[in-house]
């Protein structure tokens, strides 16, 4: 079987701050040469202190505005087709198989969760979902995630609590079935029960779609539910150590201090 692959090669990224239109755009280098190779069905955990650039890495792969790749590459191979993502727009990347669950999912007034999801599903699959089965699939998945049906007709993430937003992200993950899923602190802000519900959802989606996953987290707790094949320590814009799941356990006791000096 041919494996799909997501490679990050010597990636350097600046954040571009052009708040003041007439000033010269301020650029600050955040990622300083990141290397990573994720095969389908693998789980890579990235752990590291706040401000080390983990979300920047996630945003750069997904093509978020405000980030500029200054050198290096992001290369995606799906079904034997290899392409660089760097010059693709965010929607092109998503249709190529990338999914980002944001650390703080954006609220969007003017579109309901269900309309959003149906439009996204149509865009990703290239055909509209079967009307007969669509609503059932949506509601069944929501039920598994312990989301009330009423969320489907609410404006996307507007007034959702932190935990509800995270569930809504995993709902999208389950429905859209990407090739690679980047989950940016999906565990943070969830209580024990919600964490289990959300992790069950991630595991269901992964069993179903066999995607490769990049799991960004602060805590080792999520790794009890979702077993990582690799653990990477991230500090100051780069991966400073990699290992297997035992590395996470070590970090739990030692902390990140040793890496930030």
């Amino acid at each position: 079987m041919k494996y799909d692959k997501l490679e990050v090669v010597d990636l350097c990224v600046c954040v571009v701050n052009n708040k003041h239109a007439n000033d010269q755009a301020q650029e600050k280098e955040i990622l300083k040469g990141v290397n990573l190779e994720i095969n389908s069905d693998e789980v890579h955990a990235i752990m590291g202190p706040n401000g080390s650039g983990k979300s920047t890495l996630a945003a750069s792969i997904a093509g978020a505005p405000g980030y500029k790749v200054t050198s290096g590459d992001i290369i995606l191979t799906v079904d034997g087709k290899t392409q660089s993502l760097v010059d693709l727009t965010a929607d092109e990347r998503a249709r190529a198989g990338i999914f980002l669950a944001q650390q703080s999912p954006t609220a969007v007034d003017g579109i309901t969760l269900s309309n959003f999801l149906r439009t996204a599903k149509t865009a990703i699959d290239g055909v509209a979902p079967n009307i007969r089965t669509w609503i059932k699939e949506l509601y069944d998945t929501m039920e598994l995630l312990k989301m009330d049906k009423s969320f489907a007709s609410r404006p996307l993430n507007v007034g959702f609590s932190g935990g509800e937003k995270k569930r809504a992200e995993i709902l999208q993950l389950e429905i859209l079935r990407p090739k690679f899923a980047i989950l940016d602190e999906t565990d943070s802000g969830l209580d024990v029960d919600a964490l289990k519900t959300v992790c069950d959802g991630i595991n269901r989606a992964k069993t179903d779609a066999k995607f490769g996953a990049l799991l960004i987290t602060h805590y080792t707790h999520i790794l009890d539910y979702i077993k990582p094949d690799f653990v990477h320590v991230f500090a100051n814009g780069e991966i400073v150590q990699s290992g297997d799941s035992t590395l996470a356990k070590k970090l739990e006791t030692s902390g990140y201090e040793q890496y930030t000096k």
Binding site: A62, G63, A64, P65, G66, T89, A90, D91, R93, A94, R95, I98, F99, L100, Q102, P105, T106, A107, V108, D109, G110, I111, T112, N115, F116, T119, A120, A123, I124, P155, L156, Q172, L176
Partner: peptide, 28 residues
């Protein structure tokens, strides 16, 4: 304002920019 972050969120789910804008204005 339908800002860059909101546009990105819709685009990150495969929806192209113009479709995203149309959806938002229709809803509005």
């Amino acid at each position: 304002r339908f800002d860059d972050q909101q546009l990105f969120y819709l685009m990150s789910r495969g929806i192209d920019a113009k479709t995203a804008q149309k959806l938002i204005v229709r809803g509005f």
